[in-house]
Amino acid sequence: MAARRADEIAALGRVALLFGGWSAEREVSLKSGAAVLAALERLGVKVTPVDPQRDNLHRLAEFDRAFVMLHGRGGEDGVIQGALEAMQVPYTGSGVLGSALAMDKLQTKLAWRGAGLPTPEFARLGGDWRPESVCGRLGTPLMVKPSREGSSIGMTKAEDPEQLRQAYAAAGRFDDQVFAERFVAGQEFTVAILGEQALPVIRLETPRGFYDFEAKYQANDTQYHCPCGLSTAEEAEMQALAVEAFKAVEGRGWGRVDIMRDGDGSNWLLEVNTVPGMTDHSLVPMAAAAAGISFDELVWRILTSSNEVRGS
């Protein structure tokens, strides 16, 4: 194993670890990148950290491949993927199309609806929209989301038309595309994808109104259940749905699909993350550990999936 790994490490050449960036998720990306950097160094990989906010991206052409650990716009939306493909540098994760599509929650929902996959009813907000009309059509409460932000940034739960109006204004500070989605009361789950495999499902529990930014990265009262409490058949059904949903938006390599399960036992797709967090609060490493995959092994598997430059 060690000898084979040594040969494989040599074949990987110089690796650029992209993290930081300029999105609203910069701080999370820095933490994720630091954890991945430490793992790559432990593995003996020749790795160089690259922060697009401060480093000249032309230097990426000097590397043999790239490990993308950028969250949010500029790193998870197809922009850096397109630059890497133009330079013929292999990279981890989804291609240009998959990255761009999954980053846009509204377009993701349209793709899922077109594929016949279950996602909560929604309405695009803006123009001459009327909060009363949206509440009447979708019911309340509603989740209001900026379409192209991650880590629950800009998301608000609205209970009535006035709160919906305020939530729209709050989300609009992050994106000019905002939508409202029917709130699904029930349990929240997440399914990590590694290659073609769905890892063990994690059930999330928070005393907050929903699994928001603080619950994800700062709170100590968020609970993560793995085993998730579903029966073997129910978990397998959820895993299969997650894999189908990931493929429907051209997801590749690794990622994470978030799902709500209502009181009737129906699963509802929320969103896809094509560059999930890798911090000490993150869910993909947690799911990998439940499958017997160490953090270093997880990083290795993600890196070695970047074996060629792929079209979007």
Rank of each mutant, 00 (worst) to 15 (best):
A290Q: 12
G292R: 08
G253C: 10
A287I: 04
N273Q: 15
W254F: 15
D264P: 06
T274A: 10
G292Y: 11
D264C: 11
R261W: 12
A289K: 15
W268E: 06
M278I: 01
D264E: 13
G292K: 07
D280C: 09
G251N: 08
T274Q: 13
L283Y: 07
H281N: 12
R256A: 04
T274E: 12
G263P: 09
P276Y: 07
D258V: 06
L269I: 03
L283V: 05
P276T: 00
V275L: 15
T279E: 03
R252V: 02
M260R: 10
P276H: 09
M278A: 03
A289C: 02
A287W: 00
V257S: 05
L269Q: 08
G292I: 01
S266H: 14
M278F: 15
M260W: 12
G253R: 12
N267C: 11
T279R: 06
G277T: 05
V275Y: 15
E271G: 03
M286L: 15
M260P: 11
V257A: 05
G251C: 07
M286C: 08
D258W: 11
E271P: 01
D264L: 10
V272R: 09
A291Y: 15
T279M: 02
N273F: 13
V275F: 15
M260I: 02
R261L: 09
T279N: 09
V275R: 07
G253K: 04
R256T: 04
D264H: 13
R261P: 02
A290F: 12
A291R: 10
A289S: 13
H281M: 07
D264K: 12
A290P: 04
N267Q: 05
I259T: 03
A289D: 10
W268I: 00
V257P: 11
M260G: 05
S266W: 11
G255P: 13
S282F: 14
D280R: 15
L270Y: 12
L283S: 04
R261N: 06
P285D: 09
T274C: 14
L270K: 13
M286E: 05
L269W: 10
N267A: 11
M286N: 04
G265W: 11
N267E: 03
A290E: 14
V257M: 08
D262V: 06
V284M: 14
R261T: 02
G265V: 03
P285L: 01
S282L: 04
V275Q: 13
W254Q: 00
S266G: 06
E250H: 14
G277V: 07
D258F: 10
A287L: 01
M260Y: 07
A290S: 13
A291W: 14
R256D: 05
R256W: 14
H281C: 04
D280G: 08
S266D: 11
N267G: 01
P276S: 05
G277R: 07
A288K: 08
V284S: 06
W268S: 01
N273G: 09
